[in-house]
Computed example of a mutant assay.
Amino acid sequence: MMTRSARPLLLAAALLASTAMSAMAGEADDQIKAPVLRSTVSVSGDIVRVGDLIENAGAAANVAVYRAPDLGTTGVLPAAQVIATLRSHQVIGVEVRDIKEVAVTRLARAIDAKEVGTAVAQALEHRNGLGDAASLSISFDQSVQDLKFDAAISGTLAPTAVRFDPRSGRFDVTLELGYANGTTPVRLRYTGTAIETVDVSVLTRNIERNELIRSGDLQTERRSRAELGGAEPASRELAVGMQMRRAIRAGQALKTTDLSKPDLVQRDQAVTLIYQTAGIYLTTRGKALESGTEGDVVSVLNLQSKRTVSGRVTGRGQVTVDTVGGAKPQQTSEAEIAAPVAVASRLPASATTKAE
């Protein structure tokens, strides 16, 4: 007869056995889980295997069934055709669900023409006097096609051989693409011409010598640095309001050497002639015999005395003959100083002047 103390032990043993049997049944369910068809498949190699097409492929996962589409392309197969192919390889019981077709994409590393151009420019950067890569204009001898490589290629385009002739602008560059698994890298060779370009201000109309430049006379373009002949390009900010040193046709790029400050005094212009000497400041009318910008020394006819004097341009329509110490534009006599009739300002009576 079973004692009361033995009954709890038997119940515990039964529960443990039941739990163990449930766990074993669950593991068995996992092991025999039905294979399921995939609607989209991505492969990195040139072969499609059973494990690519279905989940839970088991031992058949590595069996090859199709050749992959071309690099970077997608092929579509009817689901019924895929199931028939799998059956021919003894893979049965595949759950199709509501899948009508299977899309297979072959992964690829794509290299486009822009990436090639950037890699070549970076290889030539600062070589034999060239500037930054961003300032280089690259022209290839042959059209650069977009390229596709095996997805296992993960490296960047790196230069392995670079030659550049600064006289002709010709380049010969070999680039290399490396595999992540250490396979022999792919090498690509390109030849062509490299030109350094800069932003320049280009005239939109013909401009004559001594003419002032307006904002509407300019547009900004990228031009070859060689076009400037070694001079610095003139920016729009610098050029507007400046005066041309020489006549230039529309379409030409402006250089800093083409520009000068605008003339404040024009030849044959009526000007104010200012005399300064110790103790006195006098003005009179004059006629400019030369053009000049601020700081230039020009000849002026004193209309009062009918004599020609030299002075420095100090403002628009204003020439100053400074006779107070230091270097003088021209030695001026006391009579010449006294000749003006318009007195702009006079020092206090305590000051002494030679003109009084």
Results as ranks from 00 to 15, higher is better:
Thr3Val: 14
Pro8Asp: 09
Leu9Pro: 15
Leu10Gly: 10
Leu15Met: 14
Ala17Gln: 13
Gly26Arg: 01
Pro35Lys: 04
Thr40Ile: 02
Val41Gln: 04
Ile47Met: 00
Val48Thr: 06
Arg49Leu: 07
Ala60Pro: 00
Pro69Glu: 02
Asp70Cys: 03
Gly72Tyr: 02
Ile83Thr: 06
Arg87Asp: 12
Gly93Met: 00
Arg106Gly: 00
Asp112Met: 07
Ala113Leu: 02
Val116Gly: 05
Gly117Lys: 01
Ala119Glu: 04
Gly131Thr: 01
Asp132Asn: 00
Ser139Lys: 13
Gln145Lys: 11
Phe149Gln: 05
Leu157Gly: 09
Arg163Glu: 13
Phe164Cys: 09
Glu176Cys: 00
Gly178His: 13
Thr183Asp: 13
Thr184His: 08
Leu188Met: 12
Thr191Arg: 09
Gly192Ile: 09
Val198Gln: 07
Val202Pro: 15
Arg205Glu: 00
Leu212Arg: 10
Leu212Ser: 11
Arg222Ala: 05
Ala226Met: 11
Glu227Ile: 14
Ala234Asp: 02
Leu238Tyr: 05
Leu238Gly: 09
Gln243Asn: 03
Met244Phe: 11
Met244Ser: 06
Ala250Pro: 15
Gln252Glu: 14
Lys255Glu: 04
Thr256Pro: 02
Arg267Leu: 10
Asp268Asn: 04
Ile274Trp: 06
Tyr275Cys: 09
Ala288Ile: 03
Leu289Asn: 06
Glu290Thr: 03
Ser291Thr: 08
Gly292Val: 04
Gly292Asp: 08
Glu294Gly: 06
Ser299Tyr: 08
Asn302Trp: 14
Thr308Asp: 14
Gln318Lys: 12
Val321Thr: 09
Thr323Tyr: 06
Gly325Thr: 15
Lys328Arg: 12
Thr332Ala: 11
Ala349Met: 10
Ala349Lys: 12
Thr353Val: 08
